[in-house]
Amino acid sequence: MKVLATLVLSLPLVFAAQAPVFVPPGPGPTEQSDNYVGKSNGSLPVEFPVPGRVFNRFIQIWLENTNFAVANSSAVFQTLAQQGITMTNYFALTHPSEPNYVAAVGGDFFGMADDNLYMIPSNISTIVDLLEERRISWASYQESMPTDGFTGFSFASENYLNTSAAPLTLYWRKHNPLIIYNSVADIPSRAARHRNFNDFAVDINHHALPQWMFVTPNIENDAHDTNVDFAGQFLQYWLFPLLKDVRFNGPDTLILLTFDENGSSSINNNIFSLLLGNAVPKELRGTTDSTYFTHYSSLSTVQNNWGLGSLGRGDTNKTLANVFSMVAERTGYRNLKVVDIPLTNISGKTPGPLNSNISLQTPFPPPNIHAKGAGGGPVFVARNFNLSHFGLHH
């Protein structure tokens, strides 16, 4: 025993990596913080809201890489679930992260199978084109992004979680979907609507939050480099007070809290997704909905609510793009009952121009100009998209 003790004591000490501890990035979601790079340079203009059929503001907040059961067992998410509708059959579209983000605003991930730097050509349309046609205001709020319209791949800033440590890469382009599309990034007025959380604080205090919002916490607060409990602490800091703030959560606000994908490619891509906000009827709060939805459903639901056109892509796929039930029931839209849920956990097998495993020469496919979207409007085709190249005419 003495020999064993001597051997143990002579071994070098090995310390396990310490998981980061949540630190509030600022005094609160409606105040600017020095932990974010750069102060806001002013608010968005206050714009007259365009009435929707069920809601007048749609906010989606994306978190990262968590299985449904894990999020559903979290005390914070259980608390939130009592205030909204838990969609138990909501599925991501593929792995890894970036293609899910890209698909949720453009209706397709074009075969993308990694998190690399992409710049989708300017003739590929997004939800922005549909919103702007109806003069519906929009913005993207990205925590820890350094400047408005930043197009860089990532950005490292002071590590406010551990001020004695080296700078930490907190912002990643792959979680900022609209900036990946050149039809947004290359137009200054659109790029300027990609804002950080200091901008958010200014916009809410000026009553200038837009009607459509995409919100991405930084890489720590969204659970990507941490876990669902860490993300839960962030939600307690950021979302909980905003749910009580009429400037954010007005009487006709619908909030989608979701994850980009689950944490395991060995099972189908079921993710925890929750509808919150004062647009959710009181009798539906604390309930569940087993209808099959995917990330395309956020597109079809927005289209259905405002009577928009469509992108003629996954947003018009009747199987993958059911409209959120609380909206469909109010508008009379008929969802498809999906019995055999498709497998969407497979990565790298979908052909497309962004799948380097198959072909880099594959052209970006045209939108289906004959598709019927949930909003009832026509398919949007960018003026610089040459349909005749594919033998088509609008």
Rank of each mutant, 00 (worst) to 15 (best):
S290N: 14
S290A: 15
S290G: 12
S290D: 15
T291I: 13
T291E: 13
T291G: 15
T291L: 12
Y292Q: 00
Y292H: 10
Y292A: 06
Y292E: 07
Y292R: 02
T294V: 10
H295M: 07
H295T: 07
S297E: 04
T301W: 01
V302L: 00
V302I: 11
N304K: 05
W306E: 04
L308F: 07
L308W: 02
L308K: 00
G309M: 05
L311Y: 03
G312M: 06
R313G: 06
G314E: 02
D315R: 06
N317H: 12
K318R: 14
L320D: 05
L320M: 14
A321Y: 08
A321V: 07
A321C: 10
A321H: 05
N322I: 08
N322P: 10
V323T: 11
S325Q: 15
S325D: 15
E329W: 07
E329M: 12
E329Q: 15
R330E: 15
R330D: 12
T331E: 10
G332L: 08
G332F: 04
Y333D: 05
Y333Q: 06
R334H: 13
N335F: 01
L336M: 14
L336F: 11
K337Y: 12
K337R: 12
V338R: 02
V339E: 14
V339K: 13
V339M: 11
V339F: 11
V339S: 14
D340V: 11
L343M: 12
T344L: 11
T344C: 09
T344W: 03
N345L: 08
N345E: 08
I346H: 08
S347A: 15
G348E: 03
G348Q: 04
G348S: 11
K349A: 15
T350Y: 04
G352L: 00
G352N: 02
P353Y: 04
P353N: 06
P353C: 09
L354Y: 03
L354C: 09
N357M: 13
I358A: 04
I358W: 00
S359W: 04
L360S: 13
Q361G: 09
T362M: 12
P363Y: 01
F364M: 04
P365C: 03
P366M: 04
P366Q: 01
P366W: 00
P366T: 08
N368A: 11
I369W: 07
I369H: 02
